[in-house]
Amino acid sequence: MPTPAQAHFMRATAAAESSAAAEENPLALATGYELMLHKLANDRRRLKATESTEIKAEIKRELLSEYVPYVEGVLAAGTGVQDDVLMTILIWRIDAGDGAGAIEIARYAIAHQLSLPDGFKRKTPTLIAEEFADSAKRARDGGLPVDVTSLNTVLEITTGQDMPDEVRAKLHKEIGLALRLSIGEPPFGAEQLALGFTAMEHMKRAMQLHDKVGIKKEMEKLERELKNSTTSGAGS
């Protein structure tokens, strides 16, 4: 065991060496999380300098692969501590169209009640539900396929979470419309009828939550189609 004088010398030497190392490289003594925050800050500056939303999404897709090991490590550790890097990557994955990757983080974030980084006014469940609903709407408006499985998963993991009724209504609306598009045109067969009735349930729920959600005409049209197909025996 070192004498008190030797212990003091060791502490003083370590402090001096650490101070010198920090002056040469400010990140020399940073933790892994601090290093990732530093990287994130640099990447956000790059994004801020880009005006095009489309190009920003491309940059995010490019950058996201660099964060995969970190995300995997955090999720595997399962500590549940607040992590602004992880929550930013959640948002970037949504923006980049990586629904499965976003849901992977979303489950963890909701389970541990993680908050969004400073600057975001919405609560985590609200952002997840609304961003997925908005993404589905953009795809639908552009004639692109909508991932209804991801929408259903988002609905599942946000069930029981507090959010504005209007936001949850948007999610039910997009699920209903996605299911309606998936069954094609009438007359409907048995499997189509089953999906159609499920779509109707989501549309009705959307209207219950927010009567100005903008789905009344589609709901009335689907109701007629289901009634006609059932009456004609097309589903038998």
Score class of each variant (00 low, 15 high):
residue 26 P to R: 06
residue 29 L to S: 15
residue 29 L to D: 11
residue 32 G to V: 05
residue 32 G to R: 03
residue 33 Y to R: 04
residue 34 E to C: 14
residue 35 L to A: 04
residue 36 M to R: 00
residue 36 M to Y: 02
residue 38 H to Q: 10
residue 39 K to W: 04
residue 44 R to G: 01
residue 45 R to T: 14
residue 46 R to M: 05
residue 48 K to S: 09
residue 49 A to M: 04
residue 49 A to S: 08
residue 50 T to W: 07
residue 52 S to V: 10
residue 53 T to G: 03
residue 53 T to C: 05
residue 53 T to F: 08
residue 54 E to P: 12
residue 58 E to G: 07
residue 58 E to Q: 14
residue 59 I to D: 00
residue 63 L to A: 03
residue 63 L to E: 06
residue 64 L to W: 02
residue 65 S to T: 14
residue 66 E to W: 01
residue 68 V to A: 01
residue 72 E to A: 12
residue 72 E to V: 13
residue 74 V to E: 01
residue 75 L to V: 13
residue 83 D to I: 09
residue 84 D to T: 08
residue 84 D to Y: 07
residue 88 T to P: 13
residue 91 I to T: 09
residue 93 R to D: 06
residue 94 I to S: 02
residue 94 I to W: 03
residue 99 G to K: 00
residue 99 G to E: 06
residue 101 G to W: 04
residue 104 E to W: 05
residue 105 I to H: 01
residue 105 I to Q: 00
residue 105 I to L: 05
residue 108 Y to L: 09
residue 109 A to M: 07
residue 109 A to N: 01
residue 109 A to G: 11
residue 110 I to S: 03
residue 114 L to Q: 02
residue 117 P to L: 09
residue 119 G to F: 12
residue 119 G to Q: 05
residue 120 F to C: 05
residue 121 K to V: 15
residue 126 T to K: 01
residue 127 L to N: 01
residue 127 L to E: 02
residue 127 L to C: 11
residue 128 I to D: 00
residue 129 A to L: 15
residue 131 E to Y: 15
residue 132 F to D: 02
residue 134 D to S: 15
residue 139 A to N: 10
residue 139 A to E: 12
residue 140 R to T: 06
residue 141 D to Q: 14
residue 141 D to C: 09
residue 143 G to L: 09
residue 144 L to T: 06
residue 146 V to H: 00
residue 150 S to N: 14
residue 151 L to T: 01
residue 151 L to M: 09
residue 154 V to R: 00
residue 156 E to G: 08
residue 158 T to Q: 07
residue 159 T to P: 08
residue 161 Q to I: 09
